[in-house]
Amino acid sequence: MKNAAMIDRYSWWEILLIYLGVLVFLTFVLAPFVEGFLVSLKPLSQLFSSPYRFWPENGSFEAYRTMWISVPGLGAISSTHSSSRLSSP
């Protein structure tokens, strides 16, 4: 007997198809962000290296540290923090 809750029940291949479709859709939507994040982990020498690598080799969060120190607005905050921490005994 059919009951109303069963309308939303999927067979296994329907679920597979839906997840595949979502995967394709989200790949298109998120690809630039993934690429942006992976590039942010790459050391400078790999940024413009010619055979393309997807995964960064010797990847690190160094770029974020550099940004935190060198960007004027952020740097002011972090330097006052670190200096006050250093000066306190």
Binding site: A31, S49, Y52, R53, F54
Partner: peptide
């Protein structure tokens, strides 16, 4: 040279 699409 270093773009994702061309590389892939």
């Amino acid at each position: 040279q270093f773009g994702m699409i061309s590389g892939m």
